[in-house]
Design a binder for these strands. Structure first.
Lengths: 208, 208
DNA sequence: ACAGTTACGCTACGAGCCGTAGCGAAAGCT
DNA sequence: AGCTTTCGCTACGGCTCGTAGCGTAACTGT
């Protein structure tokens, strides 16, 4: 974050505990109030911190919430379930569970909405959240290739494009299902979705 | 909207011109200011209408913006391009173009974010925007079935589930591509996406 | 130990927007 | 005519924002 090489080596250092308290308070406020009713003054009070301290570290609500929510996405893992289909189903279910947490969905959609008018914010979202999760796609493909479920990829550029496409399809479909359509991404839906995705990628239906 | 059977038949009727002016002013304000900086007082001024008039018709920012944006989605059409693949590509490109308009993307994401905490608002979004566009999926499948590109659907319940799945995948992927990944859903991407989707649905790659 | 530098807590403030109340005038209907 | 509802306008309390100013706390180098 503040990885400037010009880190001041003198003066009172910033309290790391305050950072953690603020981010945790932000998540708690998101759970109770949601995005629109969340105020920075309230967050400061919850964190036991002065409002001015908050403004010294974050430019505004958007940046703060991005940082507060980003860590939640790092909890996603790619469990080895033995087959590509099972791996996809596992990670999709994890993602659906994450979106069902009350603090993530409202926050994620809100900051994305703001980012359409704020290029630095969009970049922050990408580096803090989106790009970090593409590791799941890359790792899943590598694992499936090692299993022989996918042909080895020769062109690295085409592989990157395909990875981006998969990521948009998976994340987009789950988000749209849970937030826009408003219906749960339960096991039945995940199974049907994985079926379509895998057949679309390989041309052969997944083995049960 | 106000389809109550108890429509008052007496008194001064509400100005339909004011309704149109307000919705148009809302879209203009969304273009210039985006969601977060849009104020109802400003919309009223643009529309040449008193602020109180605005509050008499809409409960707040959320409801107003949903109505203002909903009509834009009705412009989507399913052009008959001769093959299922071409039809899908056409409608996906239309949807991508719609999301690139500055008033739609920010508004849609913002109201969806709010709807996670507001059940009536979610219902309003569904009936005014989402469900209306499922016609495109249903119509496209019917046309493809008539062409013999898809097998006739026997179980209507399964057909509905599949239609919902397709809708979530298509809309979600395009939204995620353009807004979250921040890259354009251009013809190259749409072609690759359609390829995967169609192969996933039919098991056979689309003919060029 | 001491001066220098930075972060912190606290208070206070102007500014802007929200949502509502109250009023008189306008526009329909019977 | 009289009745009913909407409209434009003004004004208001309440809330949040983001910043300024001050004195204090924490840490560093000499």
């Amino acid at each position: 974050m503040q990885s400037r090489a010009t880190t001041p080596r003198t003066g009172r250092p910033r309290s790391a505990a305050a950072d953690a308290a603020i981010l945790q308070a932000t998540r708690a406020a998101l759970v109770e109030l949601g995005w629109s009713k969340l105020t920075l003054g309230d967050v400061a009070t919850r964190a036991g911190v002065a409002k001015t301290t908050l403004y010294r570290r974050w430019a505004g609500k958007n940046e703060l919430v991005v940082d507060a929510v980003a860590v939640l996405f790092d909890e996603l893992e790619l469990p080895d379930r033995g087959s590509l289909a099972a791996d996809i189903e596992g990670v999709v279910l994890q993602f659906a569970a994450l979106l069902n947490r009350p603090e993530t969905a409202t926050a994620l959609m809100a900051v994305v909405a703001e980012s359409t008018r704020d290029e630095p914010l969009r970049e922050r979202i990408r580096t803090s959240i989106v790009d970090r999760q593409k590791r799941l796609v890359v790792e899943g493909r590598a694992r499936a290739t090692a299993r022989g479920e996918l042909p080895p990829e020769s062109d690295p550029e085409a592989a990157a494009r395909t990875a981006d496409l998969i990521f948009d399809v998976v994340a987009g479909a789950v988000v749209h299902r849970t937030l826009v359509s408003g219906e749960p991404a339960d096991e039945e839906w995940v199974r049907a979705f994985t079926q379509v995705l895998l057949l679309g990628l390989t041309g052969t239906p997944p083995a049960p």
